[in-house]
Design a protein around this nucleic acid. Structure first.
Lengths: 221, 221
DNA sequence: CATCGTCTCGCATGATTGTGCGATACCGCG
DNA sequence: CGCGGTATCGCACAATCATGCGAGACGATG
């Protein structure tokens, strides 16, 4: 690879101004990269895309997943639409696995911890630009598990859900209320309530909609 | 984490005898690992599983993907069946992406190049045992792309849903409450309530779970 | 037999929903 | 200029839900 190649054009979208400037400077400090613009929200960046020549379009976008206004997930889809060749790197804090998974399904090519050392961030941008992916190993694992489940419809018990819990979950995904479930299973309302409570804990959600959503998205039943 | 914890029991399955012994020795050289057995083919290893106490079962299997007899892919399925908790690391040469993808769909948790330094192999085993995954970035990228393709559905039936309604539905499928949606959209709680009410009518449901379920099942978004 | 996980049931309270019944305002269209 | 569709906002009340706390019964497992 030539050392005189044009540097990669990178955009950074991150709402915390101080942090954004730090990272932008770090990116540009690498001779192989140039942070040609940075924004505090997707909307601004998307508006800018239309105003510039294609030769100025970014090749990589580093995108905070937790932005005000348009979410990172929607942002990915929007960018992918107007810049089909762009590579998108997520920028996020730890413990946000579900959103990261959704983002990956939306087309992100990598995942970066905000707490990463700057040199790792630079390395990740280059990795992604060269056709690789940059993912934290625990996220990678969840991606693999998800894929394994999609690849093999074989019902694998997930999240340690009990038979009873799965049955109740099934009712929930049909839109039933606790009361209806109790009568369908011929048990007490309180019992159903307890089971749902345990389901919430195992699935890390705290609403019916969250449980239903996770169940259907991850093919838990 | 204790330094006196029992070492991880690792099996190695690889048909090239010299290389197998080298790697086995390297694995056991780490105090955290112990290569308790190594085989030249899956069949032998599978037979051994039945003959031993569960406490001697391996926690991680490092498996060559290109084996004589039973293929690595079949091997993964067989091991996963008789040792549900086992973690499987693929061991392979470069340029074998398609088979690696198949293997991942079969349940492998990681991927290792035979040309990797021994210290990386040890690290990968530990990574996988602790719930992570170990994947080369180019494989990771193909996995991500595959997932993105699966995640992107097709043209869909609508129910005459408005743009606003679809947006609110999206929030609902993320498990958000009305209050959260209102603040995310920067509007009144009552407005959100009204929209949801209209969504219910259009989708013929009367609970959040019903709406979420219908949305995800029929790929409404 | 002691412990653990599961299923069962209960109560109480505050938060959230579902729904009926309004109202104002903007916009496109005939 | 009316009219329909959409988006906005409001109130009120019953139903439902989320969650903390507690507890008895049963089977499996060590």
């Amino acid at each position: 690879m030539s050392v005189t190649a044009d540097p990669l054009r990178v955009w950074l979208i991150e709402d915390q101004a101080a942090f954004r400037r730090t990272v932008a400077r770090a990116l540009s400090s690498s001779p192989a990269l140039e942070c040609t613009a940075h924004f505090d929200r997707c909307e601004t960046a998307l508006g800018e895309v239309g105003r510039m020549r294609p030769s100025e379009h970014p090749q990589v976008i580093v995108l905070d997943i937790g932005l005000p206004g348009m979410s990172g997930i929607e942002g990915i889809k929007a960018f992918k639409q107007c810049l089909p060749a762009v590579q998108i790197l997520l920028f996020t804090v730890f413990e946000d696995e579900d959103r990261v998974l959704q983002a990956i399904c939306a087309g992100a090519s990598g995942y970066l911890l905000k707490s990463s050392p700057l040199r790792e961030i630079i390395a990740a941008v280059q990795e992604v630009a060269s056709g690789g992916a940059s993912i934290h190993s625990h996220i990678a694992r969840r991606v693999l598990d998800l894929l394994a489940r999609l690849g093999q419809p074989t019902a694998t018990p997930q999240y340690g859900l009990t038979e009873t819990e799965r049955d109740i979950l099934k009712h929930l995904t049909n839109g039933s209320s606790k009361k209806e479930i109790a009568s369908a299973r011929d048990t007490s309302f309180h019992t159903v309530s307890t089971h749902i409570r345990n389901i919430y804990e195992k699935l890390h959600v705290h609403t019916v909609s969250g449980a239903v959503s996770k169940t259907l998205r991850e093919r838990l039943l």
